[in-house]
Design a protein around this nucleic acid. Structure first.
Length: 448
DNA sequence: TCTGGGGTCCTAGGACCC
DNA sequence: TCTGGGGTCCTAGGACCC
């Protein structure tokens, strides 16, 4: 009974069909590098981070299609990519040999500047845009175009020029093509676009014909379009769930769509129901702009068992995260660390404060405190995270209210005393400190 | 393919409260 | 008084995405 769709109220019947675009930039980082270095066009290019020649750490962020021919792919260790593209050229290193491939370090600032040009075009082309990442966005263009078929003067339909199940050309297809071409013309990078009546299907569609693809899935063709695709093509099915689904005899989206939803729910919880719906092409999520971040983190790899080195790294990461939070106007109520131990055991530890703060010294203090558990142990990666975020303007408003009700900052001493004397349950120093900052003072330094 | 960095969402157990 | 049910918050871990 609960959570089940009532008969006669399926997703399909909720108003007119929407037109959703998913725009996905092709090999975006590599495309950006080619923008400022045209000699890289047509060459195998790999963009990575955290890697110096000779290193063993670092991973591939983006590989151009030419590089993929050599078996180089995303998330691969760079050392391996470098081997496969040898002799590979690094920037600022002279090389007499003719290189097979080219390595470039990630330059996010530059990619952001290119992305903002693309985003401008997207926002110009749609009333609602959800930016998923630097190189990916959903657009609801229902109010700008439609699924109406294109007809000529004699009333004859035109055949579709897009890939996918569309037989005839629609206004939506033309609209998507227009946006895709505008991106290339004005910014100089390529995108693949999927067009469908919902987000989940548009996402699959944009992936269907990369690079420079345009795949159109009109209403009524969704389930048939999805059915033959391998189950991991569905957003939300990764290696683990794909393996589990396979063990249940589910190979394709069609198999998943035909499976008993109750059994999927038992096995995968709410996610099971969601995957089932996606596989059937049902997705009534509205396209909404991305809200505020929910957490901010920084992490860094490097195996060590030296406690001083670990503390130093944590201090560095903590300062970095705190500074980023300040820059974004974010207050945080939870501070945590991550310690990855060989071979790959991920440990997270976190501590929540009694109120939101913006306090770099406290981030360091709490993070170091949490790190103590790992004293003497080997870690291969450390991270610091702040979460439970709230944002300055909103927070300031409630603080103003708090202040007027409780008097100005002069009352701080008695407040702190109350906290320390009355409720010794929590960590006292933090409780008192947090309470003080709640009075509108966001810096620990002001009191010490 | 033994693994970089920055995120999101979900789940499950325990504490605590009424 | 030895035990019901519901709700919320916190912590830890896991899967997934780009």
């Amino acid at each position: 009974m609960d959570g089940q769709t009532l008969p006669g109220t399926t997703d399909d019947e909720e108003g007119p069909d929407r037109v959703i675009l998913h725009v996905d930039m092709d090999c975006f980082y590599a495309a950006c590098e080619r923008l400022r270095e045209p000699a890289l066009v047509g060459e195998p290019v790999v963009v990575g981070m955290g890697y110096e020649p000779g290193d063993t750490i670092g991973a591939v962020a983006t590989a151009s299609y030419e590089a993929r021919e050599f078996g180089v792919g995303s998330a691969q260790p760079i050392s391996q990519a470098v081997e496969r593209l040898a002799p590979i050229e690094f920037p600022d290193i002279g090389d007499e040999e003719t290189p097979r491939g080219h390595y470039r370090p990630v330059d996010m600032a530059f990619y952001q500047s290119v992305a903002s040009q693309v985003k401008e075009i997207l926002h110009d082309g749609a009333d609602v845009v959800r930016e998923v990442s630097i190189d990916e966005a959903y657009l609801d263009v229902t109010d700008r175009t439609s699924w109406a078929e294109v007809v000529d003067d004699e009333g004859a339909r035109a055949p579709s020029n897009a890939s996918g199940p569309a037989g005839t050309r629609t206004l939506a297809e033309g609209y998507a093509r227009h946006i895709r071409e505008r991106i290339h013309r004005q910014v100089g990078v390529h995108a693949s676009v999927g067009v469908a009546p919902n987000m989940a299907t548009a996402k699959v569609a944009s992936d269907h014909d990369k690079p420079q693809g345009l795949t159109v899935v009109p209403p009524g063709t969704v389930a048939d379009f999805l059915a033959p695709l391998p189950v991991e093509d569905i957003h939300g099915v990764g290696p683990v769930r794909a393996g589990e689904l396979r063990s249940m005899g589910i190979e394709t989206a069609g198999d998943l769509a035909a499976f008993d939803p109750r059994e999927l729910r038992d096995r995968f919880g709410d996610r099971g129901r969601e995957l089932y719906d996606r596989a059937r092409g049902h997705d009534d999520r509205a396209v909404t702009p991305r809200g505020r971040p929910k957490s901010l983190s920084r992490e860094s790899s490097g195996t060590t068992s030296d406690d001083d080195a670990k503390r130093e790294k944590i201090r560095h990461l903590a300062a970095d995260v705190a500074q980023r939070a300040t820059a974004k106007g974010a207050l945080y109520r939870t501070i945590g660390i991550k310690a990855v131990q060989p071979p790959y055991d991920v440990n997270t530890r976190a501590k929540s404060l009694s109120g939101p703060v913006d306090d770099a010294a406290l981030v360091e203090e709490v993070a170091l405190d949490l790190l103590r558990e790992f004293e003497g142990q080997t870690v291969r990666k450390l991270g610091v995270r702040v979460s439970n975020l709230s944002f300055a303007e909103e927070e300031q408003a409630s603080l103003d209210g708090f202040e007027s009700a409780c008097g100005p900052a002069a009352g701080n001493d008695s407040e702190a005393d109350d906290e320390a004397g009355g409720t010794p349950t929590q960590d006292e120093s933090e409780g008192a400190r947090t309470r003080r900052t709640r009075s509108g003072q966001f810096s620990l330094g002001e009191f010490e």
